Computed example of a mutant assay.
Amino acid sequence: MSDPAAPTPLIDRPALARRRARAARAPELFLQDHVAEGLLDRLAEVNRSFTAPAVVTAWPQVWEGRLPGARIVPDDEVLELEPGAHDLVLHALALHWANDPVGQIIQCRRALRPDGLFLGAAFGGQTLAELRAALGQAEIAVTGGLSPRIAPMGEVRDVGALLQRAGLALPVADVETTRVTYADPFALMRDLRAMGESNALTARLRRPTRRAVMMEAARLYAQAYGQPDGRVAATFETIHLAGWAPDESQPQPLRPGSAAQRLADALGTDERPAGETASGAGAGRTGTGTGTRAGIGTGTGDKAPD
């Protein structure tokens, strides 16, 4: 029996499984294919050979022939991974459907040998921003309320922080944005359904959405995001993650206070008390370590790259 005091899970996993089973018959999973290629591109940049890889994915057909010798593991709540069995683990486009994302990464880290590599890819917070806005405005206008329709997806800083929480060393996160155009908003919704990415939230509306809501959403979508050729744009943001299982051979941070030279001397500047600025100095800019890659929208039929 389930614990009545336990929190209600965000994702309805049985419903998600039904959607994926239907999508498994789809002739094309273009987003999953695109993300798989992105993961392999990043893997190719690593100057190391891996002999015991594993891929956590809901789409084994996408990985057929892509990573020879890899063990394919379903993205269940408890992953079928043995501790220390792999030198490479990929988590491919499934973290956004996890009720416990950090738990998924922890399980991957435990499956890694020392100095093994974890690579992950998950949809980020800007994914389907256009659809989320149009549906929300339409539902409020027509019904006066709002129901959960698109799973919440994290921003790159939040998702990247999961790597540290999971105990991975040398964490890196970057963002890839893929923009795709569709004939109309309904073509986008059909594509999401065909890829198993339709609404599987536990708190979702359990009855068909009113036609008036859908028609108003389509109107608002076309009005706000229509293209000169009459098509509409959709954004898919993929957050790519990388981290290593801790090992003594990895670079270690220096102990605080162990520097042999002052920073001011190394930079060739004068040292001043906090709050004091040099005469004529301009305002500084603060950068982040997060990279952004331009994406490529691919596909056939009702969708086309933007």
Rank of each mutant, 00 (worst) to 15 (best):
L16P: 06
R109V: 04
L39Y: 05
P60S: 10
T269V: 14
A264Q: 07
A70K: 02
T298H: 06
M1R: 15
T127P: 02
G243S: 09
P171Q: 14
A294H: 11
R255L: 07
G144Q: 13
T269R: 06
M189V: 15
G268D: 00
Q227L: 15
G167D: 08
E77I: 12
R71Q: 15
A274N: 07
L146R: 12
F50I: 03
Q252I: 10
D302R: 07
R285I: 05
V156R: 05
T177N: 04
H91G: 01
G291V: 00
L10Y: 07
P185N: 04
D87H: 02
V159Q: 09
A200F: 05
P83Y: 04
R22P: 00
L119A: 01
L241W: 09
V78D: 15
A6S: 13
W63M: 05
D229L: 13
A217C: 11
G243Q: 00
R71V: 14
A161Y: 07
Q164N: 08
L93Y: 12
Q223I: 09
A54D: 07
R204V: 11
G257T: 01
V102S: 06
H86L: 02
G287N: 00
F186R: 14
A233M: 13
L10Q: 14
R42Q: 07
A52V: 10
V142G: 08
A5G: 15
A234N: 04
R25T: 10
E28V: 08
D158M: 11
L192N: 00
R262T: 04
C108V: 05
D247R: 08
V159G: 08
R211F: 13
P9T: 08
G160D: 09
A151K: 02
L220S: 05
M1F: 14
S279A: 15
R206V: 10
L67D: 01
A260V: 08
P53H: 03
I296A: 08
T209A: 10
H34P: 09
G38E: 09
E237W: 02
